[in-house]
Structures are given as structure tokens and as C-alpha cells.
Computed example of a mutant assay.
Amino acid sequence: MTNVISNSVQENVADAESSTPEISVRPVAGHIGAEIKGVDLSQPLDDAVVAKIRRKLLKYKVVFFRDQQIGHAEQIAFARRFGELTHAHPHEDAPPAEFPEILTIDPKRYEQKYGKKFRDQYAKRQYTYYSGWHTDVTAAVNPPAASLLRAETVPDFGGDTTWTNQAAAYAGLSEPLRNLVDGLRAEHRFLAGQERGDENDELSRRIKANLLVSHHPVVRVHPETGEKALFVNPGFTTRILDLSAVESRKLLELLYEHLTRPEYTVRFKWEPGSVAFWDNRATAHLGPQDLDHLDVERVLHRVTLIGDRPVGPTGYTSEIVEGEEFRATANVKVA
């Protein structure tokens, strides 16, 4: 499948001048992130504006918009300018009425759905739906090409999200280590590090009923920029194939420590109406780590763009082990 972000408008990735001088772009960190002003996401955008946003997304990996007065419909309409949207999530059986593309991220909603012990159970794991370094849905053979997250309600303090540039992290490895990881493959699945799960945990049962397991290259060649990027993350990567358990664990620990080094990251303070749009093929992100002890409300809404199968430097293309490709329709099985 042709990469979805580039389907609408073909263009040079270079940060060339465009005919949209009213749009300002301000980088916010050394390796990743920029804030875009002068765009009203509640209104239809012409092709030149969409093309410029795409260029900035490819260059900065995540772009931010402030003070956007939009709802589900406008968020979906804007995201569709960049490609076809997925269903809300492979395990989401109750998206907002009439908006099956929307995944609402709200820890209190998860507690209502999966029980009051939800936070305690997931604090013991490497990954939760609201915290933990991860790249979105890499358990699928075609993880989302990009994600768009909108803040509805956020606390006055805390609750920041951090992104890391996995292309910059790859470039920062020594040449011998780059040569090693270029040829490796890894397994990705939900509940990384907790493969056995808990039969009394409703979410674990649902994940097992809708199993997704894929093999991906450890390094992904970006289909638009040609950059090489690390493509492992603590949230979904279980092991590196063809290595011993000890070798796999030690190498993944090294890569995780490297890709989350502060110099590759940007941290974003949410406000109501804030929107973050990131390239899921070249980033990982970390949800807030500072709210579990506070009685605060935090509600955001995400959509994701259908992606293609990652391809590694050796030409290896991701393969399905369990499940199906992540597409616009879903038939979620309730355990």
C-alpha cells in the first residue's frame, strides 16, 4: 500500500518557501517539535496549507496547535486531509456515537470499563493506555502512520506528554551498533512484558480475544523521507528475534535508554483546545507520569491514520503473526 500521508499531495520534503506566509512555525526543541500558528482547524484548509503542515510534520516529527475550537467532526475532517483514518483502536468497542474513528483517552473511563483496580494493575506493567513510552499500536503489522490528539479537559498543572525523535536517536548510535540493529527483527504485541496476563483482568481477556502480534524490523526506513529510525518501544516490543533471551533483553534496554535520552525529546504542556499531530513512524511518546496521586480530570481524543507495513534497511517487510491489519473497520470481540 502506498504511504497514506503522501497520497493527497506529492511534494518535496525540503522546508521550502510556500504561498502561505500567514502561517508561522516555531521550533520548540533541538531535535523534535514545532508549534504552528495561523491555522484554524475548524475551517476547511486549502491544499497549500495542508502541504506546508505535512512538510513541517515530516521535518519536526510532531507539530502543535493551540487554541483550537474544534470537536470530533472537525478533528476527523482535518486528519482526513492527510490520509484514511483507522477505527478508534483494535480493542475499542464503544467509540463516541457517529464517530468510530475517535478514541477517548480518559483514565476514569478506563476505570469504569475495566474496574477500580485498573490503575494498580497497570502500574505493575511497562505500558498503560495513559502512561509509558510507546509508539502507537505497533502490535499491528501496519501501525498508524500518524496520530492526532486533541485536549478537551486538562488539569491546571501536570499531565504533560513527551515525544522522542527515533530517527535522531538512530543517528546518534555508534556506527557498529547501527550496523548491528539494521539487520534485526523484533516481536511486538500488546501487554509487552506481561505475556501471560491475568485471567481475572478484563482488559487482558479482551486483548487475548483480539490478539495482535507482528514482527517488525528493529530499524525502519521512513517511506517518505528515507531516514532510518529505531522502531522498538517498551510498550509493545517483547523481544528481538534470533537472539537469546539475555541478549534480547540487554540490547532492548540499551536501545530504550538511548532513544529516551533528553536531547532527543520535547515535552508539551496541554491546554484546552491544544492539538498534537505526530509522525508515528519516527517517534515514541510518553504519557503523563505525575497525575495518579491527584484527583484531576484529563480527557483527550485521538484519531490515527492508516499506515503501511514497515520496511527495514535490508528490505525485510513486517509480517503478521496473529491478527489482521489495522484498518477503518473493526469487529472487536468482547471476552
Rank of each mutant, 00 (worst) to 15 (best):
P217K: 06
I320S: 12
L259G: 02
Q68E: 00
T237K: 02
H72K: 04
I70C: 00
Y129E: 11
F231M: 05
A168T: 11
S174Q: 10
H72D: 13
T2M: 13
Q43L: 10
Y129A: 15
D15E: 15
H87Y: 15
R66Y: 06
S8M: 07
R220K: 08
L184F: 04
H87C: 07
E98G: 12
Y256M: 01
N179R: 15
H31S: 10
R119L: 02
Y114E: 00
V4Q: 15
H31W: 11
A335E: 14
G71D: 01
V62W: 07
H91N: 15
N210V: 06
D120I: 05
P96N: 02
H216R: 06
Y264I: 02
D93W: 12
K124Q: 08
V49D: 01
P90L: 10
T20E: 03
A14H: 13
G273A: 03
T314R: 09
V275S: 09
A14N: 13
L180W: 08
G30F: 07
F277E: 01
S147D: 04
F65K: 02
R205N: 10
V154T: 11
Y316M: 03
T283R: 02
H31G: 04
P234I: 08
A209P: 02
R26H: 13
K208A: 14
S318C: 05
T314G: 10
F326Y: 15
D156A: 12
Y110V: 03
A282I: 00
H258Y: 12
A51E: 12
A328G: 15
P176C: 05
